[in-house]
Design a protein around this nucleic acid. Structure first.
Lengths: 207, 207
DNA sequence: CATTGAACAATACATTTGTACCCCCTGCCA
DNA sequence: TGGCAGGGGGTACAAATGTATTGTTCAATG
């Protein structure tokens, strides 16, 4: 299915692997060997053991010996939350055709960062920063606003008002929250009335 | 750690839950009760059973009864590749403060769709659709271009030229690829010279 | 034709593992 | 003062589970 760098599989092995990917994707945990046996329509665990051994030798799966249901898929979409990046696409002129996988988009490092939170964007004040209404922004909690780079996109809690997503600027004792849309004027406030909650890490838009 | 909408926990329960989140995040599978026992510094499985029962009753975890290592955290970052969506953020005016988790951003359904591929965006012809240079677009392979909704964003291979990301329109026997940027003119081509590779599923931008 | 490797059946066995009891202790509250 | 819930220790047991062993069949291969 997905292009993998591992050794090729026999059809029986591929069948098991595909089922495993599906099962783990659905159930979020590994099946037991006897479950695999049933799913493959077999009446003995030995063939499954054999397939698993081959899958392991060929670098497709791994598990903790002796421990139940610890099987993991290696280098697969479901396991690493990765998606093959096939190449660049022109959003302007036309660029070359792509053939091979050039890279893997691995969201895991971001998504596994503990403490991240997400916000649904409401409004259009950040459209010039390509953040549209309805987008989900992933934020990393900010503990020390002093260290923020000027212009960073942050979610800030303004005393008595609410939370807003803006570019963050410091101007002496005051803080300026600037929209990325000329229709909105910058908001200038005393620093102690603005509590920066998080800074932008990523934008996710599902079509 | 993260604010959860479930019932509150005692410190012992919280301790176990935090350790579970950490373990599952690292190992990608559930520990056994006796492993939890050791990690908690206990010498008997009973206290762990008790804590697990409470965590389940309060809606923090679940598992398949009788099956080994099938424990799952409910609504947790590490386990579901989800991130708590704390609320809406104004990118315009100011909206209410958020306190509780309102939803969970779960990328898994998209990322686990088999066959998806990703492309790095190169250029600015789609900026009006909030797709910027350097963004990664997740595409779903298109097998039947006939069924595409008019205006869908697609990656298309133009005969002899290359691949481009555009809005897709059909006009009788010809296909129009339209940029989302007035600086670029629509490209009109005979349908047989355009091969639609995929349609836009999501946009990912990492800051 | 003989050999080899994958696949499958059937069975056996030692652990791992979930779960159920039993007991005790402590803090809290009516 | 008694009751109760949470936390912990200890033990037992059946079921789930990984793994090994012994054959058989079949297709590919030299």
């Amino acid at each position: 299915m997905a292009a993998n760098s591992q050794e090729s599989l026999t059809s029986a092995q591929q069948e098991l692997y595909d089922w495993l990917a599906d099962y783990i994707g659905t159930h979020r945990h590994s099946p037991s060997i006897r479950q695999m046996m049933q799913a493959m329509g077999l009446r003995s665990p030995a063939p499954v053991q054999s397939r698993l051994r081959h899958l392991q030798q060929k670098g497709w799966i791994t598990w903790q010996e002796g421990q139940a249901r610890t099987l993991q898929l290696l280098g697969d979409v479901a396991a690493s939350v990765g998606i093959p990046v096939l190449g660049a696409v022109a959003a302007g002129g036309l660029v070359d055709t792509f053939d091979d996988v050039q890279d893997h988009l691995d969201l895991a490092p971001v998504l596994e960062t503990r403490g991240l939170f997400a916000l649904t964007v409401n409004g259009d004040s950040m459209v010039d920063a390509h953040i549209a209404d309805g987008d989900v922004v992933l934020m990393e909690p900010v503990t020390d606003p002093q260290r923020l780079r000027d212009g960073t996109v942050v979610s800030a809690l303004v005393a008595g008002s609410g939370t807003t997503l803006k570019h963050f600027h410091r101007q002496g004792p005051t803080v300026v929250l600037e929209a990325a849309n000329p229709a909105y004027s910058p908001i200038e406030l005393p620093a102690d009335q603005v509590q920066v909650q998080g800074k932008l890490v990523a934008v996710w838009r599902q079509v």
